[in-house]
Simulated scan of single mutants.
Amino acid sequence: MQPLAQQIVAGIRDAAGQDAVDQLPSGLRALATMPELTSSDMDYIIGEILVMQKAIFCDLMPMHQAYVDGGLPALQEMADAGVFGPEIIDACRDIASGEPVATSPPASLPASPPVMRCFCTANSSPSSASGGTLCAPTAATSARP
C-alpha cells in the first residue's frame, strides 16, 4: 500500500504542485511519507476501519428500522427531531420514489453536516423482546477532519 500512496502523492505533486498534495487526505499523505509500515501498523489501521464500519452500521440501522416500521413518515419524524438534516430526508424521499435521481453531489456541502452519533459497545446486544436496539442514536454534529 505504501508504494501506491507514494506514487499517488508524487503524481499529484508533479501534475499540480505541492498545494494540491496539501489538499489530499492526511492519512494518504502520512502513508506516503512513513519510513516503514509494519504489521503492527496494519493491525491498528484495520482496527480503526472496523470501528468506522461499526459506526456506519450504527448510524444507518435506526434509519433502516424506522423506514421498515413506519416508512417515510417515521424518517420525517426523525428529521423533525433533528436526528439528521434536510439533505438526508430529501435523499430518502428520492430513493423511496423509485425514480432515477442525480448522482452528482450538491455544489456546496455544509462544513459540518449533521450526523447521528451512535454509542455502541462490544458487549451490547439487541433485545427484540423489549424493543431495544443495538445502538442508541442521539443527535450530534460532526466536524470534518
Rank of each mutant, 00 (worst) to 15 (best):
M52N: 09
D90F: 02
T121M: 06
A16T: 00
T103D: 08
A16W: 07
V21D: 06
L31C: 05
V101K: 14
T133C: 07
D22R: 01
S104H: 14
M63P: 07
P106L: 10
L4V: 07
P126V: 14
P35W: 08
P100A: 05
Q7G: 10
D43M: 13
A107C: 10
C92Y: 13
E77T: 09
L37R: 01
T138R: 02
R117C: 05
P62D: 03
G71P: 01
C120Y: 11
A79R: 05
S112T: 08
G98C: 01
A55R: 15
M116C: 08
D22P: 00
V101N: 12
G85A: 09
S130E: 15
A79M: 05
S104P: 09
D69H: 06
V9A: 00
I49V: 13
G47W: 12
S104F: 13
G47E: 11
E77P: 01
I95E: 09
A102R: 14
M63G: 11
F57L: 15
P86H: 06
S40L: 15
D69L: 06
C135E: 00
S125N: 08
D94M: 13
A81H: 06
D43Y: 12
E48S: 10
A10R: 13
K54M: 12
I88C: 14
D22N: 05
M116R: 05
M42R: 12
K54G: 08
G27K: 04
I12E: 05
M34K: 09
S26E: 04
I89H: 03
D59I: 12
A111R: 15
D14T: 11
G132N: 09
I89M: 03
Y67E: 10
G98M: 04
L24P: 06
S125E: 11
P62I: 03
S130L: 15
Q53G: 07
D14A: 15
V51Y: 04
I46R: 10
M52Y: 10
S124T: 05
P106G: 08
S112I: 04
I46N: 10
P105A: 02
